[in-house]
Design a protein around this nucleic acid. Structure first.
Lengths: 337, 337
DNA sequence: TTGTACGCGTTATCAG
DNA sequence: CTGATAACGCGTACAA
């Protein structure tokens, strides 16, 4: 637990200058004898380079941050699992931020990039406003945003197409003969909330179905809140035969509520979610879900950031991951064992 | 994206020395006029302190690392969610390491503490050997280990009592009239694997039941591997009426397998897991599980570390979190809706 | 090939 | 109350 040797300590021990120590440690050409003495001294002393001092000089920390809304949401977890190895392979450590979907906190993270404790940031904000965009463009380190930003914003951006995603699910319901399709959404002032809201309205019309506002309910993107919203929806529209949920946590809440209400899934009410989290396949019945390619979006974001770190001046890139529908028991019934 | 102002920039702009700038920024007593000029200069320039330079001087990074076996395991996630706010409230950032339960990687994390990029470490190793203990005691920053270390090891340590935990579940099975109680474990060379193995053997004997090695199967602590192990167990001991699983992922795998095999849970076979992860309550049927207080262990570890960071010389503490049984449908049948 | 000396941005000490 | 200056540990021109 002592204070740790520095290159000065090693230099004294090896009888050379600190410059030589530094050279040897960095693999620069040095006389073989010197190399040996430095290395053995370093070894005996258990030397470990001080990354802070190194960073001050090199202006790189080899750390990257990932800021997500809620570390407890499986979607973000999936992304972490993809981002981590990509960055690790490139020699970066991952620092996590959980912002609780709080705008002020997110902007604070952006601002804190000026502290230079990370070389870059991957961020997935729930709400994106003027303040965000200004902060992003003023950021002092490369930033990649997961989630659609307004066109023309100068940021690397990984997006998905949740509009198409919602449509895939609605068409699936329709093809199964469902005509009273409810929709449970999260807050409308969030990026996914607003996108999915318009997608539902459009999708319903394209199917030639009437838009009935009694079929729409708004809660939040969590399981408990989702369940409550589904309850309200059920009492307002008892005749519904399908429920589209804006994410899987809401959909899992829907399964709970429907079971308690004695409605069979999918015979009475079919259910679909979005995100295709791991729990979707686990649920009972297993949950049909629109995959938004969370794993792939995470990986792409990491790759985009690495690319940018290696080449700071290229133009911003936008990458889009297409959604696809994972059909499971909650819409088509149980597979036979 | 410019290079960012430093206190020197501010000093020039405000027409004072860098010392004064530093004083103002750190709230040290300064003439009001100076304060104003410095603050406005800092504001105009959008100054953000360089945390790397500060760390070099102060020898503190205000970062703490958490090293877990697998970032995908809900148990560790629960811990992260508890650790994070405790540390954040104390002004620390969290850096995550996923070691894939690899001993070499874990020791590398310990060694890397010498790099001074974090002020402390919370670690939860699956296997704890001589190498670990040596590395821990040689570590150059405070370490807290979650998981039992040998008595006498000089480390802050948060443990649980999985022996009692296994016993709770076995007694529960026994009280339900089950007598052919199988056991599916993870690798025996892991800390939890070995503890739970002996706990099962002891518990069975204490209940006056014969120890039948056909009732014991070893796989790994993941869902798929657990499911395979349960399959093997079922074919070797088709008459079992209960399965104790060494963690919840295995237990979820057990539910899958039993369902496919046409065995009703709990009527034909009762199932219990350990860890009480969130998915346990979600599963169908909901899963009886031995809670090992993951959230509390995480919180305690964070508090222990903070305490140590504030007072480096106290004696190591050992804190134990008692297990308790969460009884759900997989052993007692479905609650009525 | 090696050593000296400076700078990275801060904080802290010590005169003025 | 303020300003010059010395660290912190490392990398690296530049000189020897």
């Amino acid at each position: 637990m002592s204070d740790g040797p520095t290159i000065t300590t090693i230099a004294e021990r090896a009888g050379v200058s600190i410059a030589s120590v530094s050279r040897v440690l960095n693999g620069l050409p040095t006389r073989e004898d010197t190399v040996r003495r430095v290395l053995s001294a370093a070894d005996e002393l258990g030397y470990v380079p001080n990354s802070v001092a190194r960073s001050l000089k090199s202006r790189r920390t080899n750390q990257v941050a990932f800021a997500m809304a809620d570390i407890g949401n499986p979607v973000y977890l999936t992304m972490v699992r993809e981002i981590q190895p990509v960055l690790k392979a490139a020699g970066y450590r991952l620092v996590l931020h959980s912002t609780d979907a709080d705008v002020a906190e997110e902007i604070d993270v952006l601002r804190s990039l000026g502290e230079r404790y990370v070389d870059g940031l991957i961020m997935i904000p729930l709400r994106i406003g003027e303040a965000h965009l200004k902060a992003v463009e003023a950021a002092r380190a490369p930033v990649v945003i997961i989630g659609s930003v307004p066109d023309g914003t100068r940021v690397d951006n990984v997006r998905t197409d949740s509009r198409t995603g919602v449509r895939l699910a609605l068409e699936h319901f329709h093809s199964l003969g469902r005509r009273r399709i409810g929709f449970v959404n999260g807050p409308l002032d969030t990026v996914p909330g607003s996108a999915r809201s318009t997608a539902y309205a459009e999708g319903i019309r394209e199917l030639g179905l009437p838009y009935d506002e009694n079929l729409v309910e708004i809660g939040d993107f969590y399981r408990a809140e989702g369940a409550q919203a589904v309850s309200r929806l059920l009492s307002r529209a008892p005749d519904l035969d399908a429920v589209m949920c804006a994410n899987d946590l809401i959909a899992l809440g829907a399964l709970d509520v429907l079971r308690r209400a004695g409605r069979r899934v999918p015979e009475d009410v079919a259910v679909a979610g979005m995100d295709d989290i791991d729990l979707a396949a686990v649920a009972w019945p297993s949950l049909t879900s629109v995959s938004l390619g969370s794993a792939e979006r995470g990986r792409l974001a990491a790759e985009l950031l690495l690319d940018r770190l290696g080449n700071g001046d290229r133009d911003p890139k936008v990458v889009t991951v297409p959604p696809h529908l994972m059909i499971r028991a909650s819409t088509v019934g149980e597979e036979t064992p």
